[in-house]
Design a protein around this nucleic acid. Sequence first.
DNA 1: CAAATTTTTGGAAGTGGTTTTGAATCGGCC
DNA 2: GGCCGATTCAAAACCACTTCCAAAAATTTG
Lengths: 150, 150
Amino acid sequence: MSETALSFTPEAILNRLRGDGLRITPGRRVILEVLFEAGKPLSLEEIKDLAAARGSRPDYATVFRLMTLLERLHLAHKVNLQRSCSYYELHDPKKHYDHIVCTSCGKVVVIDIPCPLGATEAHIAEHYGFGDLTHSLEFFGRCPECAKAA
Amino acid sequence: MSETALSFTPEAILNRLRGDGLRITPGRRVILEVLFEAGKPLSLEEIKDLAAARGSRPDYATVFRLMTLLERLHLAHKVNLQRSCSYYELHDPKKHYDHIVCTSCGKVVVIDIPCPLGATEAHIAEHYGFGDLTHSLEFFGRCPECAKAA
DNA sequence: CAAATTTTTGGAAGTGGTTTTGAATCGGCC
DNA sequence: GGCCGATTCAAAACCACTTCCAAAAATTTG
């Protein structure tokens, strides 16, 4: 479907943390690995469980704090999947982050498409006077498997 | 900026409820009035307060249940404004529901634009196999007033 | 290399929006 | 008017998130 490799490495993030006077701990390394290899947004609970599967056992609060920190540093961002909890993914400035969620089974797929909203943002800036525009876009639909099953 | 009148009346919703064996109560009438006249998404708390200002005093749970019901019937939907609580608005199948949120003062404006995502949805349907596509799109930026103030 | 300093962590408690529960009440149909 | 099931209030439960503090770990310093 599409190559989802990020345009930077886990080391780049670790270096960024170090540069800000923050510390590299084994637990943080594991969480970053998990995020790098996920290929889709993860909930805090999922991050915790995937880290546990790799031998680290971070507390929920620890995962929460790291993700909040990464968010502040613009190294990660939240995704709204219309669920009861938030999902996070690493932020790659070179990519768009549009997703499609199956309304039947809940599967999430990251879609790799040229984002068609540049012209729209220009239009909004002109007609509504807002500046520094960003957007959040999620699609919802029925995945092929669920369509077959129905 | 744009005409935000809905393509149906409060009565249409009341009739729909009645048709489903559900009941019309004074409290529900008031909440629907509030939603009709809002012109922007409202939180449950706001709906409750606006209803109170009209003499009804629905419990929070009552507002919650009505909105959940309307959502199930596709007569209303949630909007994600990246806040700590959910916002709701009546659902008009004839309109798009795109919003812009000021990242500085939090103001929400409903934007009335031709939605540029039709072609994208076709592309997704073809390349990812998802059907029955819908989307949720929010813009974030600095409103004119906040830009001036800064 | 050990002490000092600062950040990070786990565990638990607190917060706030959401959801459920149960008893009392009310709307709509006979 | 009377009945039945839908609706409501009020309170409690729930759950994801957030904060707090003391202990532990990562760096820095002596």
